[in-house]
C-alpha cells in the first residue's frame, strides 16, 4: 500500500477530535526538561471511567497548592501566556503510559505540543487523540522560548500539511517529521481503529497462523 494510504475502506468514521491542518496561535512556555506524565496528571486523578474533565487537573501539583489555591508563579496561572500550543523542554511526557496525560493536554485546550524530544508512548498517545506533537531542534526550541519571553503575544504557525512550524514575528521556520499515515489521520480526523476494522479479515487469517 503506497505512502500511508488507507485501504479501499468500507467506512471511515470521524474521531472524537477535530481535523488538524494549520494552527496559528500564541504559545504557553514550560521550559523544564523531563516533564513526566505524573506531573501532567497525577495518578490520583486517573479514577474516572469516562474521558471527561481531565483539563482541570492538568499539571495539578505544579498549578495548585495543597489547599487548592493557585500557585501564582506557575505559567498556567499567568494570564500573560495563553494559546493552543504548549512548548515544553526536552524529553516531554516521559514515564507512565497513561493516555489521561494527553487527554488532559487536549481537554485544557492545547492542540499542539512543541518540544525538542518526546517520550515514545506520550507521543503516540497524542497522535491517537488529536494533539500534534512537533519535535524541533534544540536550537529552534530555544528560539521559540526566547520569542515568547520577549513577546508573549507572538504567534506561531504549525502547518501540518507542509510539516513546518514558523515563528510568525520573525519569519523563522523549521520543518518537522511525521509519518504519512499519521499525517493523513490527523488532517482527516481518521482513527486507527477504523483502519484496523477495515482489515479485520486479513487479521483473522493471520490469527489462525499463530501457534499460541
Amino acid at each position: 500500500m503506497a505512502n500511508g494510504q488507507w485501504p479501499n475502506s468500507k467506512k471511515q468514521k470521524k474521531m472524537a477530535y477535530d481535523k488538524f491542518n494549520i494552527l496559528t496561535s500564541t504559545a504557553v512556555p514550560l521550559p523544564i526538561e523531563n516533564v513526566d506524565t505524573d506531573q501532567i496528571i497525577p495518578a490520583r486523578f486517573l479514577k474516572a471511567i469516562e474521558r471527561k474533565g481531565f483539563g482541570d487537573n492538568l499539571f495539578r501539583d505544579w498549578r495548585y497548592n495543597q489547599d487548592n489555591s493557585p500557585k501564582e508563579d506557575f505559567v498556567l496561572n499567568d494570564a500573560t501566556y495563553t494559546g493552543k500550543i504548549l512548548v515544553g523542554g526536552k524529553n516531554f511526557g516521559s514515564g507512565s503510559s497513561r493516555e489521561h496525560a494527553a487527554w488532559a493536554v487536549y481537554d485544557y485546550g492545547f492542540r499542539c505540543v512543541i518540544s525538542s524530544f518526546f517520550a515514545d508512548i506520550f507521543r503516540g498517545n497524542c497522535l491517537n487523540i488529536g494533539v500534534l506533537p512537533v519535535q524541533v531542534s534544540a536550537e529552534f526550541l530555544q528560539k521559540i522560548f526566547g520569542e515568547i519571553e520577549k513577546n508573549p503575544a507572538a504567534e506561531f504557525e504549525v502547518n501540518l500539511p507542509e510539516q513546518k512550524v514558523t515563528i510568525l514575528t520573525t519569519g523563522e521556520s523549521e520543518s518537522f517529521h511525521i509519518n504519512d499515515y499519521k499525517k493523513g489521520n490527523m488532517t482527516n480526523g481518521f482513527d486507527d481503529i477504523d483502519y484496523l476494522l477495515n482489515i479485520k479479515d486479513s487479521i483473522q487469517e493471520f490469527a489462525k497462523t499463530r501457534p499460541f
Binding site: S97, H100, L196
Partner: peptide, 20 residues
C-alpha cells in the same frame, strides 16, 4: 510494551496495534 487507552481499544477490537 505499554500502550495508551486508544491502543487498548484497538487490541480489544482487532487484536492488533499500529506501531512503527
Amino acid at each position: 510494551f505499554g500502550i495508551g487507552t486508544s491502543e487498548v481499544e484497538m487490541v480489544l477490537a482487532s487484536q492488533c496495534i499500529m506501531q512503527p
